[in-house]
Design a protein around this nucleic acid. Structure first.
Lengths: 205, 205
DNA sequence: GTCTATATATTGATAGAC
DNA sequence: GTCTATCAATATATAGAC
């Protein structure tokens, strides 16, 4: 039973750490990583700044936990889609819906992931997380290439440019979507997918 | 002639100030406003940090000059388009091309404008610049409403959502477009406009 | 105009008491 | 686990010599 004690303490620590991470996510999402001080985080969490170092090794450690935690969840769902038997167009649609849903379920974390993209590329420590961005590109581009081959997309599609438009139109949604607002994330997804597939033009030209 | 002297000194000052702003734009675009120190700016410009305060009142003054300078150029061109006799669809196309061209001619400044959007909204000092973002929204939304009325766009278009997709797909281009790279900004504009108007679908369904 | 020198504040982080 | 107290580094900004 004495052994057990260690495990239980560690469980509390993990729970509190997760709780603190939510506070960090909200602050860093709103004010930016560089502009958020560890003192502000302590204030918001009801702790003194020094106490945070019982849970985190450093400020960078906090950012790493936030981003890699989100990526773990997201990339697992992407893998399910890649492994499925759906058509390329359906896979693309599902991947974009999963991404948009994360803006509802993990709003702060996605905002951090988006806002601190530059830092993720500049800082050597965050290389693994930056690398995963390339996996996202490979996945989406693969769907586009396969979709063109299957006749589901325009034959003259420039995949590299199309990928960038898709990526850049979907992720910034997190900057204006607010959970509990007057438009649901499913409505956003419906409208965005309609526009990406059909465009602005009238359907019968 | 003694009076003239003041004007000439002031002219030199303005020229050097503009030169320093280019250095600031490059640094702040690459490393972010909060993470860029005045010492780094001084080093990059060949001055000591203290000397910068002969040209700028504060670090915030630098950011304000960068952003409002860009906006002055851009919004003047937007006004020409609004005042023109073109159709809504052509106005939309022209406005997006002007925005994309700025990523070629004022790449660093547009990156700063994009990256520091959150700070522009949080800091009271930058309110006027944040307000101009709403003017951009009004303009583009106006084109969309008029275009739907004129039958140039789908009748069931949800203007608010369409605006956001357009805005979010166009401005992030600055994060990957590089002047002098293997794709010109005109090529990007052609591809993006084709996708926005026609979508991913094959043209003959 | 640019420098030297420095004021003043704030930062991330640590050591040890409780 | 959290606090007190504080370190060392770094930040923006200023005053006055040159």
């Amino acid at each position: 039973m004495a052994r057990r004690q260690t495990g239980e303490e560690s469980a509390y620590r993990e729970a509190k750490r997760a709780e603190l991470l939510k506070v960090c996510a909200e602050l860093i999402a709103r004010r930016g990583y560089a502009a958020t001080t560890v003192r502000e985080i302590g204030d918001a969490a009801g702790l003194l700044s020094g106490s945070l170092y019982y849970y985190f090794k450093s400020k960078e450690d906090i950012l790493e936990s936030l981003v890699s935690g989100l990526q773990d969840v997201l990339w697992a769902r992407y893998q399910e889609i890649v492994d499925s038997a759906d058509s390329p167009r359906v896979k693309l649609e599902r991947a974009l819906r999963v991404s948009l849903e994360a803006m509802h379920t993990h709003n702060d974390e996605v905002r951090v992931y988006q806002n601190e993209g530059a830092m993720l590329h500049l800082n050597e420590r965050f290389k693994p997380m930056a690398a995963r961005r390339h996996e996202f590109e490979s996945m989406i581009s693969g769907f586009l290439v396969d979709g063109v081959a299957a006749g589901e997309f325009r034959a003259d599609l420039r995949v590299q440019v199309a990928f960038r438009l898709i990526r850049d139109s979907v992720w910034p949604v997190v900057h204006w979507y607010r959970p509990g607002g007057d438009v649901t994330i499913d409505e956003v997804a419906d409208e965005y997918l309609a526009l990406l597939f059909d465009g602005l033009n009238p359907r019968s030209m």
